[in-house]
């Protein structure tokens, strides 16, 4: 088991070192998310529309669109120079490869989200600080679901020529339950309701997270095999 965790840790370490040298993933995701938010600011008249009504949806659209770019790039790094083949030749369990990539994706996405949140707060004039605790829980659950499913599907689509197109087509429909739950919970939290009143949504989002991870663990072996 210790060996298993060491393999997961090694993949996360490798991805973080690569990212620290290039800032490729983070900068692309951050700029894209920022652009999405700016486009919405200019397209919505916030003097008529309540920020608390439209804000949660826009925030999650920005996270998910930007995250998709990150997912696409993440597995492309493994395909370049046949690195995925190199990984497959090591004695590491295939699920350790999956968890390693999933955790790396989560780290970069959470960093990007942490940078976007203050900007979102300024642009939409919403108070996130007083709801930060519950909001972080919701963001964690949503990001976990996104990365759990996204990592699996990006490994699947990385074998395809049309990978950039295929990933969102496969990912978004399957991600709908998590997105709905996260947008609803974010809206309610910003409206001042306690997270305890959102148990139904928390439960369903957490359930989908577990299902995504479970399905990934069952199928990753076949997906990674050439």
């Amino acid at each position: 088991m210790r060996e298993y965790f060491n393999h997961v840790k090694a993949i996360v370490w490798k991805d973080c070192v690569t990212e620290l040298k290039t800032w490729e993933l983070f900068s692309t995701m951050f700029v894209f998310a920022l652009l999405v938010i700016i486009i919405f600011i200019f397209s919505i008249n916030l003097s008529i529309v309540n920020s608390y009504d439209v804000g949660p949806g826009i925030l999650w659209v920005a996270f998910i669109f930007a995250g998709t770019i990150g997912l696409n790039r993440s597995f492309m790094l493994e395909k370049e120079n046949g690195c995925l083949q190199g990984l497959m030749l090591t004695p590491a369990d295939r699920t350790a490869l999956y968890f390693g990539k999933m955790i790396s994706n989560m780290v970069f996405l959470i960093l990007m989200e942490a940078m976007i949140l203050p900007l979102f707060m300024i642009f939409f004039n919403v108070d996130l600080v007083s709801h930060l605790g519950p909001l972080l829980i919701v963001i964690f659950l949503g990001t976990l679901g996104f990365c759990a499913l996204g990592t699996l599907l990006s490994s699947l689509s990385s074998h395809l020529k049309t990978r950039e197109i295929m990933l969102p087509i496969l990912l978004y429909p399957l991600l709908v339950p998590v997105v709905i739950g996260c947008v609803r919970m974010t809206g309610e939290i910003l409206a001042g309701k306690a997270l305890a009143t959102q148990l139904k949504w928390i439960g369903s989002t957490a359930c989908f997270d577990i299902i995504y991870i479970g399905v990934s663990l069952l199928t990753i072996d076949h997906i990674l095999e050439e």
């Binding site: 490798k14 070192v17 040298k21 790094l77 120079n81 190199g86 030749l89």
Partner: peptide, 10 residues
């Protein structure tokens, strides 16, 4: 193999 299996940025 035909591929180096090495990470170019490392």
């Amino acid at each position: 193999s035909h591929s180096a299996c090495l990470y170019e940025d490392l």
